[in-house]
Structures are given as C-alpha cells and as structure tokens.
Design a protein around this nucleic acid. Sequence first.
DNA 1: CATCGTTGTTCCAACGATGTAAAGACCGTG
DNA 2: CACGGTCTTTACATCGTTGGAACAACGATG
Lengths: 329, 329
Amino acid sequence: MATLKDVARLAGVSVKTVSNVVNGYSFVKPDNRRRVEEALEATGYRPNLGARNLRRGRTGFIALVLPELSIPYFAELAGLVIAAAQEHEWNVLIEQTFGTLSGERQALASLGPHLVDAAILSPEALQVEDFQLSVPAVLLGEHDVEVPISRVGIDNVAAAMTAVRHLISLGRTRIAAIGAHPQRGTAALRLEGYRAALEEAGLPFVSSLVVPAVNYHRADGAAAMRALLDLRNPPDAVFCFNDLLAVGAMRTAAERFVRVPHDLAIVGFDNNDESAYSSPSLTSVAPDKAAIARAAVDLLRQRADSPDLALDDVQTPFSLQVRESTVAR
Amino acid sequence: MATLKDVARLAGVSVKTVSNVVNGYSFVKPDNRRRVEEALEATGYRPNLGARNLRRGRTGFIALVLPELSIPYFAELAGLVIAAAQEHEWNVLIEQTFGTLSGERQALASLGPHLVDAAILSPEALQVEDFQLSVPAVLLGEHDVEVPISRVGIDNVAAAMTAVRHLISLGRTRIAAIGAHPQRGTAALRLEGYRAALEEAGLPFVSSLVVPAVNYHRADGAAAMRALLDLRNPPDAVFCFNDLLAVGAMRTAAERFVRVPHDLAIVGFDNNDESAYSSPSLTSVAPDKAAIARAAVDLLRQRADSPDLALDDVQTPFSLQVRESTVAR
DNA sequence: CATCGTTGTTCCAACGATGTAAAGACCGTG
DNA sequence: CACGGTCTTTACATCGTTGGAACAACGATG
C-alpha cells in the first residue's frame, strides 16, 4: 500500500507537498501539482485514515447504539443513519444493547473519544446518572426523565393522541393500549397521549384495558392480545405502542377468529415496511425516519465542530398512515 | 483523556512498562504492576485504538457489505455478524449498496486495508473482474460465477429442492416460482433446484409459471403474483425466492380472494422473523443465520492471521420451517 | 540593489502506541 | 567478588499523517 512518502519520492517533491495536494491546499505550483497527481494516480494512493485521524484528533466514526437490528424500526433507522452519516464523511459503528441496562452501560463505556467522534443513542433502560459521556451525543426519542443530552424525535404524546383520536372518530369506545412499560420513557408518553385522547372524548380510562409489554416484540403483542380477548368485556379497538406489538395482536385476533378491522380496529406505531403488506394492512403512526436520521447526524456534526453548543431538542414530523386495520364500526 | 504517558508519570515508570502491563506481558515486577494498575484505574486509561492500530498495522474493523438494512434478512444477519465479530474484538462497519453495481463497486473501492482488516460481502451484481480485493474477504451466498473468494452459505439447489418437494408432497402440481433474475447467482441456483424437483417428480416445467423479480421486495412479490393469477391456468402453489416476495404474493392473494393455503400454497425463503406472524404464517426455507455469521467471521479471523490460507467454501445447515401457508390439497 | 510581501516548498515535531535493542538489576555459582 | 544468566526496565525509533515554522524563490517597490 502506497504512503505519502512513496508518492513524494515518485513525484520528486516533499511529503508535505503531496499532503497539500491531497488536502486541496491552494498554493502548489501547477507543474508540481500535475506531477503529484500523476504519482497519486500511478500509486493508487489512499490516505491511511488511522494515521490521519491520530494526527487530527478525530476518528471518522460515530456510534449508533440501539437495542437490536432484528427489530425493523431500528434496522430501517440504521440504514438511514448510515446514509446520512456518509454525507458528513462519517462511518457508522452499530452497537446492540438488546434493551438491557447492562448492555447499554457496556455500549456507553466503550464509547471512548478515540473510538468515535459522537454517538446516537436509543436507550431503553438507562438511568440519569449513566449519561456521563465523553463525546457529543444525541438521544433518539423522548424520555420522561431529564437528561443533559440533546434529543431528536417526534412528539409522542401528540402522536399517541392522533392515533387514539382516529379510533374514537371511527366510533370505537372500548379502546385498549398495548405496550405500557414502567421503565421506558416513550411508553409513558404514549400512554399519556392515550389517556388524554380518551379524556378529551369523555371516554373512561379503564385500567384493565392497558396491557404492559416486557419487550416490544411480536410475541409480546400476541400475548397481550390474548389477555385482552380473555376479558369479560373485550375491547373494540387497540392502540399498540409499536408495529411489532400490533402484528402480534393481529395474529392472535386471527387465531381467535376475531375480525380485524370490523370487530377490532388496530393501530400501530412506527410504520414499519412490513405493515403495508399484512392482511389487513396496518394503520400506523408514521414518524419521518429519514428526518430523524438526518437531524441526529446534523446535530452531531455541529456539536463535533463546536462542542459547547447548547442542548437542542428537535421535533421531527409524523403522520398517521390509515390503512385497512381501522374502519368505522 | 489519559495516555500511556500520563499513566507512566503517575506510576513512576516508563511508558513501555505501562504498555507491557496493559498488554499482559509477563515479566513485570509485582510491585510495579500494582502501581501501574492503580494508576490505570486512577486515570481511567483507555487505549487509543487509532494509535494502536497504526502501530500494529491493523484497524480493528471489518466491513459488512450488503444491499440494504431495511431488508429483514440482512438486518437480522447484520445483528448476528456484529455479535460474532465482537468475540474477535472486531467492530463492524456496515456499507449499503442498494443492490446496484455502482453501489457495490463504490463499497469495494472504499475497502482499503487501512479502513478494515477484512470484509464480508453480499453482492448481487458484481462481475468477476471486480473481485480484486486488498483484504481477506468472504462471500455470503453462492454465486454461479467462479470468483477467487471464500464463501459461506447454504446449498441453494438442495434448499430449493426441499421447498418444492414439500409442495409436491402436498399434492400440488402447478407450482410457480417467483424471483428469477438474470444477474443473481442465488436466483439461478434456486431456479435450478426448482426445476430439478419438478423433473424428479415427473412434473412439466412450464416457463409461464416462472416469474422474474427485479428486486426482492414485497412489492415485486405482489406484482409477480398478480401476473400469475392473471394466467388462464393459475398455479396451485408458489415457491418464492425470499420471504419478502412471499409476503407480497400473500397480500395479492388476499386482495384477489384466493385462499392461502387451500387454493394456493406458498413457500418462502430466508425465514424472516415476520414470517411466523403473518396470517397465515409462512412456510419458509430457514438458513441458520447465526451459523452463517459465525462461520464468516471465523473464516476471516483465520485469513487475517495467516493471509495465504486456501480458499474455503463453508456449507451451513438449513431446514424447512413448515407453517400454515402450506397444506395438502 | 536592499527590502518587502507573496507564493511555494521543505524540515521538523507531534499524535499515542508498540517492537527492538540495549541497559540495568538481581540471582546463584565457581 | 567477578562472572554469566535470567529477569525487568528503559530509550529510541517507528507507524502515516498533518500543523507550524523556517526557508527559498520571485517579482515588485522604493
């Protein structure tokens, strides 16, 4: 592999001059520039990023800390983050925490400043005291605890209200919620939105219609739905806190011969790609994932360049994708 | 951020002694070792990976080049590769090619030896002449062209035969195939297996029942299924070359009121997580993704340590997950 | 023609870690 | 107590790059 030295020898100039050409420094004689460029071409020179970053004090990487890539929402988001990072000449390092506190702590611990320039975090269990980071970071999604980190995400309360209002507008009155979770900040906010929409419509808040979910996997949605259908007075609609839960719920409904959407309307959250193709297709709250990815990376780029910018809180847009899983009674 | 120098000063020893302690060199006096360890603890020292790798000539990264993270198969695989790489102290850099030749060439070009120690490739369009790599690499999946690179994957012909034999054993006789593709090596192999299974059973090969797919997305499966249902004599079973195509096909069937599995049995390929939760759930060829990830990383570790090991071709196991989408006539 | 500013180039040091060689400490032995 | 051999530590160079200072060349200016 060719180094600057090799190129310099071939072009008959100093190493620094080659470096200047590579980095687009203006004052290089046309003649030398040509010779250097020819030598670069001839040797197929590619800068050694390790060395460059050692010298510059940057690494060229950002970390993306998320629960699990096998969860479609995070996979889709990761793809978008990678694309957005590329435009800032950043490479993305993905760390999976599997949603556990220890996994998250471990991921954070490995985020020394020599490994990454910045980090995008999507934690589920972290405590306030864990957020002692040595690099600029941004939190994806809202959390109910106050942490000294910038955030990017949608307004979860408003989004949940939109979903539940939609169900109410269809004449549904016994609306369940799947996905309550004592630790998750977003869960608390979505529950708050659910509650607010019910209240607004004068519907009672029935605690037996609120089902927790340990994880947010399909199996958890299926189990929660079983519990709901076993109630003496089952719901006529369900608001699921993510699409996987909704898919699980739909599966249980099908097994129990409960007709979706007629007997049971279902709304999900995240608008996964798969949700447009289920039968029936799933109505879902659709955060603008590309906007989230872009905003997060942009925010980090700014913080990486000037570290003491104030905290920011970027609200990205969302919409409600109405599909077959919700119709009027 | 503390460096070896800081630790050395604090412990009252030379930089190299600290380095020796950090790297587990045996001959350090207990007394010094203790002092160094205390100093390491006190300063919270973490090695600068850039510098270490510059010196050692390795980067600590491997590349995972794949079409798109939003495709569940690759997302699941990526998660497993990351986990497997972690055990070898490798970080994974994901590059998306979006299945285009230019995207793949670009990804390959960026794989200089100073960026990554090795690479895992999942190409779709690359030509033989593109495989001039400067780092050890392994190809995921089989390809019909011969390339001088080690491979890891299942036996696609056998897997396809297993799927089609299953349909035949259920009494299906007009079996379609969705996913033919002129460029993709795996497509050719799966088609070969499809053909072989038909022949073995004495069933005719009907070319109108073989539908190509440009991409392997859900929409392509839906479109292909529409074409099949428009035939004068539509199929009673479909073998889809991946689960996304199968999900699309199921969706079209539902829209057209074709009953799956009774009127139409469907088999997919990849066994995505979502396939267990569709209604009906999807029978699918299930490659052992964890085994693939592990084998690929292990193989690269060996090649990284001793670069001139011979080419290898690891066959990983697969099974057929029979679910609701296939029953006897 | 001495001086100056501009332009272009080179030399040197540094980023933080590690391999090498050599020096130093320490032991037992003759 | 000099010697050799085994531990233990250190100084130094080095990986490939870039920032800064120094230097060199140049025409223009007074």
